[in-house]
Design a protein around this nucleic acid. Structure first.
Lengths: 220, 220
DNA sequence: GTCTATAAACAGATAGAC
DNA sequence: GTCTATCTGTTTATAGAC
């Protein structure tokens, strides 16, 4: 349906974002040149300024892309089974839900799209002047709050106690660590890649950890 | 005892390494210019080439510095109490030792020097072409192996089973996470800084986690 | 919308005076 | 050992043809 004109564009902007996500994630923002991004996206250098107003605008677009994708993955994880029920879970139900969400997070971070998004996100989290505020308010903060309420339902601990917040962070932390230190883990395990069987082994270990930590924190 | 000549140097090389560790850690290697490093160290741009042969040489020197410092911290942590006894610990002793080592790691990563070294190390771990091999073989690998043997003594599990290696990684991972995501944790907790009382709260949570995970993995 | 050509700033490295 | 000055290559951004 494109009229007649010279060049077509299924979506140059989208290709630029995907290329930038990968390269920013692998090498870092400053280590990646706009020429490199354009080449990887099969586009022209000037198209970055045209579509996003410059390199920094492309970075911001990557952040919005991440918040959208990861946000919907997390939203789906929270609503496993019953996309309606807001509250009133038994401790056993809440505990199971927590374990399931952790498994989904493990899968999401180690799946195909996660391996595109996670490195970029980790870099933004650790860099001082970056998208950290946007990503925190758009995704990390809300997700952590919901996890804390589930934690409270599961253990009987107050949802806003410092210990609760830190316990939930440590739950998430051990999952994120395996995305962060993938290269080291592969090397030590003698694994070539992170396939289905490796993922299954990791998932079972993390599930055991999560269940042990929840049980330990449960008010008896 | 320095002869008579013009300029003195307590140690320009050392000042350059410390400045580079901080700036590389905060901003990343590529985002940091040699001029910036020299200014922060109170030295001249040309001194980097003179002392280290160039920017890449300075990066390698930072890696060696880290391996030396962190290595001795970890060595001390393993030898708490008895710097001689090689083996033959009861499960209870091994478990306690494991918990103590985790506490030392938490302190080391969140203490003054850890806050200088950890960001740099985390960046090197996540970057593709970097010092990851050097740091792995000089520190991470050996430390992980020793932790796995302690884990085996504590739980009765084989020291080289995949589950053992992954359990130990998850132990370390949750500790590293709080160094990685410090900014996010501070924001969510409503903390201004990471002082003594905050460190105490975190340490107690992590200790509880470690003990729960060890207990869960113990062969009964 | 896409491209080429170019501008203006900045990078790391080094020669040579001191 | 330290400094200034400079060389060479690369960066992002943009003007203007198509």
């Amino acid at each position: 349906m494109t009229p007649t004109s010279s060049a077509r564009s299924p979506d140059t902007g989208d290709a630029l974002i995907r290329a930038a996500l990968r390269l920013f994630g692998e090498q870092g923002y400053d280590a990646t040149s706009t020429r490199e991004i354009a080449a990887a996206a099969g586009a022209n250098v000037a198209s970055i300024s045209y579509h996003f107003g410059g390199k920094e605008g492309l970075r911001a677009a990557c952040g919005d892309f991440i918040i959208g994708r990861m946000g919907s993955v997390m939203a789906a994880a929270f609503d496993i089974g019953d996309p309606g029920a807001p509250s009133g879970l038994t401790p056993q139900e809440a505990s199971l839900r927590l374990v399931q969400i952790c498994e989904r997070m493990t899968q999401a971070l180690n799946g195909e799209e996660g391996r595109l998004l996670a490195p970029f996100m980790l870099r933004e989290i650790t860099s001082p002047s970056s998208l950290i505020d946007t990503i925190y308010e758009g995704m990390i903060g809300p997700v952590h709050q919901r996890l804390c309420r589930l934690w409270a339902d599961a253990t009987g601990a107050p949802h806003d106690a410092p210990e609760t917040l830190l316990r939930v962070f440590s739950l998430v932390g051990q999952i994120v660590y395996f995305a962060l230190a993938r290269r080291i883990v592969l090397k030590r395990m003698g694994w070539d890649d992170f396939g289905a069987s490796e993922a299954a082994t990791l998932t079972s270990v993390l599930r055991a950890n999560v269940e042990a930590i929840i049980a330990d924190a449960t008010v008896r």
